[in-house]
Design a protein around this nucleic acid. Sequence first.
DNA 1: ACTTTATCAGTATTATTATATTGATATTGT
DNA 2: ACAATATCAATATAATAATACTGATAAAGT
Lengths: 219, 219
Amino acid sequence: MDEYNKPAITTQALGRMPYYIQQLRMLRNENIDTVSAPKIAELLNLNEVQVRKDFAAISTSKGKPKAGFSVTELITNMENLLGYNNADEAVLVGAGSLAHAILTYEGLKTYGLKIVAAFDINSAYIGTEINGTKVISAEKISDLCRRMKVYIGIITVPASQAQIVCDQLVAGGVLAIWNFAPIRLSVPDHILVQNENLAASLAILSKHLKEKMKYLDLH
Amino acid sequence: MDEYNKPAITTQALGRMPYYIQQLRMLRNENIDTVSAPKIAELLNLNEVQVRKDFAAISTSKGKPKAGFSVTELITNMENLLGYNNADEAVLVGAGSLAHAILTYEGLKTYGLKIVAAFDINSAYIGTEINGTKVISAEKISDLCRRMKVYIGIITVPASQAQIVCDQLVAGGVLAIWNFAPIRLSVPDHILVQNENLAASLAILSKHLKEKMKYLDLH
DNA sequence: ACTTTATCAGTATTATTATATTGATATTGT
DNA sequence: ACAATATCAATATAATAATACTGATAAAGT
């Protein structure tokens, strides 16, 4: 039940878990029951040692030389880590196409999230359902979060409204915010913000490509 | 025109640029023409030194003690860096709600991307338009990419089809791929892949929250 | 003019993450 | 039973990124 003497899992490793899970499930479907770190590394195009370290960080048992790790056990360990069996409830604010994409995203439950309500200010959306989730007037954010004891909020509204929405979520007792608006939210110290910034990824891709193109020009 | 003796910009710094641009534009709108690194750091909740370093990495001129940096100059430098003035053309594959969200995302042009075509296999979508972009049959991916000399591809199809689509893009001469499918694509060495993995972010958020909750329980 | 002060640039330190190396061990094949 | 081998665990090194520190300097106040 506890994890002393375990190398605490790093943020980066955590980010790789979904890839591992996905790959391990594929192997399980092929009735493969043990797998080595080098094999997974090859499949996912990662470093062998990195994979082994990641496995060591989450696995309840050790890998065996020559054989590797138990596929089902790794899956179970990762699922537990990510909260597969006790998904947190979350609310989503903003009912646009991004919200739609999130609500229909199969990964949600797998990685520990269950969206219990969606909010919007646009009366045209209010009362409708998106993939089984009711859209409710944004006025009720604080009230409903508090009453339902929801601790995670997802923000998909435009940048201009993100801070307002954020404040309402915080007022409603939300502790963690998954923010898709391209701004840095200002929150009290104890609130967790995970920014999902398309602009940032795009910037990185664009810059890398420019470097590559420059390089190609010279040769 | 060249940048010797410049600290090369890091990936992380690059990811912060969109936040800086956004903030700097707000300041410009308020007719503020110089700003200090500590001020920006405070507004964006970042470390003062980090901001100064980031500015130093992209700015064509130096900051002045007591005054700070020129707002407009910083904006110009960042826009150039990110390709604001010569946006790359890209194609998008998969016409679902995520594609919709990307196509209507205002940030695109700002950060150097212009989507010239969208592809899908679903005949119900083919021929329609999303926010002004035509949806074309997925059979034509390779051919069209090559003819239009498009070097960036965006993948928003389900995981099961992502590799196939990826191969078609590569066959069409695409050099950089922005991948929203939750798998690690296998590509030739010279192809750039930027993964945008919702599952990974979610995993990180979920884990952090669990730690926080555990901590709160103990007090 | 002089002093104070906010800010800068440059350098040093620390933290985090990734990768390489070394020796041990379980399985396979002879 | 023994040797060969793939893989592991653990430790060491390297790469990357964040933060702290130190001395210099431009602007503002006295």
